[in-house]
């Protein structure tokens, strides 16, 4: 129980978010957003989960460079893989929403292009990894790439969109953030807990991936 409580918490929080995000009151009348403002409880937590998973991976990349322990490399690569899954869910949900908000699946926008380029950077991480046979060399190259990719990724996905002069994406550039739209704190009641729930779920899935990777790696050693 002591080990499992956060997994149960993640399930409870996400069910709460499904319920609250759809049925609780929300500012449903903001310009072109309409009821899609409720997406803030579903689409945005995907990106936060991705960011947290990549941060964990970055830390384990540094740890690998310091200690050269293979399990730190498993940790880093597993967390990036699951982070990419959450990133894809963020891109897919965002693109679908864009079709019915702006009329296009994709537009030229610092927020969108920043996220896309950021994800491509981590796709290259896998190309790099899979092209190296030797375990130690693969670990080192991966860790170095990871440690350099993460700050660039943060710049592309967080700093660049917020510094841009013009953006259509809510919360980026000159568009209003949900903090200024959510005057009655209706969205916050769901959004924060939803984000915590999805982050916990993401970490859970990533640790499962890590444990599988470790089982496979130990099998190869024997």
């Amino acid at each position: 129980m002591r080990k499992y409580w956060w997994k149960i918490l993640s399930i409870v929080l996400i069910i709460y978010a499904i319920f609250g995000g759809l049925s609780f009151p929300a500012p449903d009348d903001v310009e072109i957003l309409g009821k899609t403002i409720r997406n803030v409880s579903y689409h945005v937590p995907m990106w936060f989960t991705m960011l947290i998973l990549l941060t964990v991976s970055y830390v384990y990349g540094l740890k690998y460079l310091a200690n050269n322990r293979p399990k730190d490399d498993s940790m880093a690569s597993s967390f990036i893989k699951v982070a990419m899954l959450f990133g894809l869910m963020g891109l897919a949900t965002g693109s679908f929403w864009a079709r019915f908000t702006w009329g296009f699946w994709w537009i030229e926008d610092p927020k969108l292009n920043g996220a896309a380029i950021g994800m491509l950077i981590y796709m290259a991480y896998y190309i790099l990894r899979n092209s190296i046979e030797d375990e130690i060399q693969r670990g080192k190259f991966s860790a170095v790439y990871n440690v350099f990719a993460f700050p660039i990724f943060i710049v592309l996905i967080v700093i660049y969109p917020s510094m841009a002069d013009v953006s259509n994406h809510p919360g980026a550039g000159d568009s209003a953030a949900f903090s200024s739209l959510d005057l009655d704190n209706d969205l916050r009641k769901v959004f924060y807990l939803a984000t915590i729930g999805w982050i916990l779920l993401g970490v859970w899935v990533a640790t499962l991936k890590y444990r599988l990777t470790e089982i496979k790696r130990k099998d190869e050693e024997i």
């Binding site: 997994k7 996400i14 069910i15 499904i18 319920f19 759809l22 049925s23 499962l208 599988l212």
Partner: peptide, 30 residues
């Protein structure tokens, strides 16, 4: 709308249940 919510909760609950099963299986293998 609560019917839709119930549908989503059912889908997510089963997915979460599957995740729990998977977790237990991996623990067993370990």
């Amino acid at each position: 709308i609560y019917v839709v919510i119930a549908v989503l909760v059912i889908i997510f609950s089963l997915l979460a249940y599957y995740l729990v099963r998977l977790d237990k299986k991996i623990t067993q293998v370990e």
